[in-house]
């Protein structure tokens, strides 16, 4: 009974955060398209409410939240995209550093799995950045084709995860040599089942290869890639879904700590925008990281899939827009 109540409460909070998201984004749209006149103070203040709503959803789905924040704020707010991305990065980073300690203490996230993934992804993101620059200079429209391809891949992963059985608790396979080498395992208490779930990564070598690909794409587009971590951890490395989303958050703490410096040095961090966004995210993700513990893994799956579908559509749209098709 207690479980039902907890989950009902969690679902109610998730629904409330979606309502806030729609109200804030809708009001911003009215202001941007001059249907109503909004005062200048509205914009930084509304960032607080927007990021609060994103903060509730992001830790549940294992993403930093930039995947929702950047397209919404770029389209609906008067700030230049440079500041949107700077604010989005600090906001996503805050979401991760607030949620990760709880996940680590609960056993849902593990440094033994996050460190190799992060080492590979950040190293290859440098290669990706170089490739991205070369594509831009040799074939200016190439990035848009890659972006469309990325959206299609995301859609494919979306359908695979949607239809795959046992995504919440993938069937345990024998650990491969890489998993055994780094002892990539752990355990956590699954409250909804009242049992300790033990896990160990399998196909970790293949998983790290996939993280290398994620790093290249992330570096090429200068984007965070929380949405990509989860399918690699869950579908390839056969980790339980909650472990995958939580470890994804832990990976984001490290990748964003690496990426933040360039935004700080180039002056893309303006406190007037960043501080309200960070505080909204702080409160939201404190709530979101608690929700993860009390809801069934299948709900985590649906929230993650919804965000993934949104990311796929946005990537395809951005690619087509860049090519002048839409």
């Amino acid at each position: 009974m207690r479980l039902e109540l907890n989950e009902r409460g969690a679902l109610l909070l998730i629904f409330a955060s979606l309502v806030i998201l729609f109200i804030v984004a809708g009001t911003a749209a009215l202001g941007t398209y001059k249907i109503v006149t909004l005062p200048e103070w509205y914009w930084p203040l509304s960032l607080f409410f927007l990021t609060f709503a994103i903060g509730v959803l992001a830790p549940v789905a294992g993403v930093g939240g930039g995947v929702i924040f950047v397209p919404l704020v770029s389209a609906l707010y008067p700030f230049h995209v440079d500041f949107v991305r700077g604010t989005g990065l600090v906001m996503a980073f805050t979401s991760a550093v607030v949620a990760a300690p709880r996940f680590l203490r609960e056993g849902l996230a593990s440094l033994r799995i996050a460190l190799p993934a992060c080492a590979v992804a950040t190293a290859t993101s440098i290669v990706g950045a170089i490739i991205g620059l070369q594509i831009t200079s040799a074939f200016p429209q190439g990035k848009y084709y890659v972006l469309i391809a990325l959206g299609v891949i995301l859609l494919f992963i979306f359908f695979v995860m949607m239809t795959a059985k046992r995504v919440e608790f993938p069937k345990a396979k024998d650990p491969d040599p890489v998993s055994r080498l780094f002892n990539m395992r752990g355990e956590y208490f699954e409250r909804t089942l009242n049992t300790i779930v033990q896990y160990q990564a399998s196909r970790a070598g293949l998983g790290l290869l996939a993280f290398a690909g994620v790093g290249i794409l992330a570096g090429m587009f200068g984007l965070g890639a929380g949405w990509a971590n989860v399918p690699v951890l869950n579908l390839i490395m056969s980790l339980p879904l909650k472990v995958s989303t939580s470890t994804s958050i832990l990976i984001i703490t490290m990748t964003d700590a690496t990426a933040a410096w360039i935004y700080i040095a180039s002056g893309a961090i303006i406190p007037l925008l960043v501080v309200p966004a960070v505080f909204g995210m702080y409160i939201g993700s404190k709530i979101g990281s608690k929700l993860v513990l009390g809801i069934r893994p299948v709900i985590v799956k649906y929230i993650f899939l919804a965000i993934m579908l949104f990311a796929a559509i946005m990537d395809i749209y951005k690619g087509l827009h860049g090519l002048g098709v839409v």
Binding site: R105, G107, G186
Partner: peptide
């Protein structure tokens, strides 16, 4: 549930 010391230290410092 056993939690690795390194995980606990990382969590506390962050």
């Amino acid at each position: 549930v056993k939690i690795d010391t390194a995980n606990k230290i990382y969590a506390r410092i962050v």
